[in-house]
Amino acid sequence: METILAQILTGLSIASILLLVALGLAIIYGTTGVINLAHGEFVMIGAYTAWALQTYVGAGLIESLVVIFFVVALFGWIIEKTVIRHLYRRPLDTILATWGIGVMAQQAIRLAVGGELRYVQMPSAMSSSVSILGIEISAFRLFILALSAAIFGFTWYLMYRTSFGMKLRAITQDREVASCFGIKSKRIYSLTFAYGAGLAGLAGALVSPLKSVSPEMGTTYVVDAFMVVVLGGVESLIGTVASSVILGELTGFLAFYSNDTLAKVLVFLAIVVLIRFRPQGLFAAKIRS
């Protein structure tokens, strides 16, 4: 019983990180159709911003989060303004352009601060572990879990209870008609992209104490996050959560019974089969195509 519970918690911990990375990606992809391969680099830049704030300003991780969000969001906003905006009519080409941007971002960071591994301190208040129902779990992981739930809640509120969200959903359904009603789709697109980037930055900052920070760290996240988005179904926030949990738990359990590599193989195989039979994802929202 205890091992199962421990496994569920491990799975949830994996899932919360997946959700943080995938949420921004899901919003960008769902709204604009842009396949953002630079998303991993947004995560990486978030982690480096956390490191820089800690090393040069001496700010703790928790206090830095808001700053990190805005720094990476600004970065995303600039990229949308300069590159992505010209590619909305060629969605497949966004793969190439964002890949190029990702390569540039990696190298720029390498030139600016060096390629060696960096470490970010865990907030001291959270470096202990907490006992839940007899199972020890790191307080920081619990914090990530809570924060990702909160961020998801906020995003949901933004999408479904604010006028920004309503405009965004209108554009997603039909850009032309939405524009006719006076919605400035260009502005909404930039803001959406910036928001998605900011979320990725937060994800990077939050994983930075758990893993070492390196210019290449984003690459591992972007593929996994894409699988979450596709599995969950485009334009479905609930789907993104559900598929993060499914993938997180599945990875956790399979890794427990075999090994990490085989677990990943099985998860990817499951995704291949699933896309084949339900390309719209598990929890597809109904939209006009």
Binding site: L92, I95, M227, V230, T261, V265, V272
Partner: peptide, 28 residues
């Protein structure tokens, strides 16, 4: 893939996932 009439981005993602599977299996 193609019997299921999967197209566009989804083909890209399936092929990418399949590549990761083969790669991981060889490493494993």
């Amino acid at each position: 893939i193609f019997r299921g009439r999967v197209t566009g981005v989804y083909v890209a993602i399936i092929t990418l996932a399949a590549l990761v599977v083969v790669n991981l299996l060889i490493i494993d």
